[in-house]
Amino acid sequence: MSTTSSIARPTSVSPSVPADGAGAPPTRRRRRSPGGGIGATFGVNGLLVLGSAYMVLPLLWLVFATTKDASALYGSDAFTWGGAFFANLERLLTEDDGIFLRWLGNSVLYAAVGAIVGGFVALMAGYAFDKFQFRGKGALYGAVLIGVLIPNTATVIPLYLLAASLGVTNTMWAVLIPAFCNPFSVYLARVFSAGYLPDETLEAARVDGAGPIRSFFSVGLPMLVPGFVTIALFQFVAVWNNFMLPLIMLQDRQLFPTSVGIFLWQSQVQQNPEYLPLVIAGSFLSVVPLVIAFVMLQRFWRSGLSAGSVK
């Protein structure tokens, strides 16, 4: 009981650890009160079913739409199977010499490198803010918090202007380097470091003669793995979803991530409806891995969080 609440506290502060709500242990539920009649049961669960339908039906529409060719999309019932699923996928993967796979690869590359490097950089900073005492700590952390509060898109055009003056637009770095910088991850890392890593453990390592760097890698890091995974996952999703930055930075189609690539096709649909199945199939293919990953990683977060709290 105490372990679960100690783990729930940091996550309830931050809006970004949704898995925890799902992983809340059932023992915490209140006992059935006499307030709920059969009508209330139907009312509450009926509304939840309606809400879930609102969330899921658009995705279901995407699945059905992927099975149709351009004419069937305009003609037939939305929630019926068309016969063009494999034809659509084949066209998607061969269009323009298979450029979609290239875009998918770019998305994975940007998101994975951004998540791992950015997550690690943030973890180190959050750890330092939590465990070390130094002059100017308040001011530096204030700068991080201001960074959290500035909307991403407000810095995109300034980033472009700077990158243009340095001549590094239209390179992978123009998308990757901004992905390394996520002030919110530092905030999360500090919360996780305070929650997962007791000062006494580091004290013990220090007494045993380990230097600060060694303490971090051999004692701190292993205990912060669940926090790191959570931070990296959020950063992965953020980079994967980013649209404005790559749209502005990149001109070479070979460097596009899927979001910008699909947008390119979408902007041609008005002139040529044959692009429509490509847009739909491309959307489908870039959503499926994320949905699967989300369902699986939710489990991982849950076990990661509880494992972190037991140690």
């Binding site: 049961t41 509450v44 669960n45 879930s52 969330m55 649209f243 699909i262 959503v287 989300f294």
Partner: peptide, 29 residues
């Protein structure tokens, strides 16, 4: 609410759209 059933399943379904990139969500709609 006390009478809510299948909380985990509902949470998952309600959260699902967040796994969809903004570009794709806007396209679907």
């Amino acid at each position: 609410a006390v009478v809510a059933k299948a909380r985990r399943a509902f949470q998952l379904l309600l959260f699902l759209p967040h796994a969809v990139p903004g570009v794709i969500a806007a396209l679907i709609w």
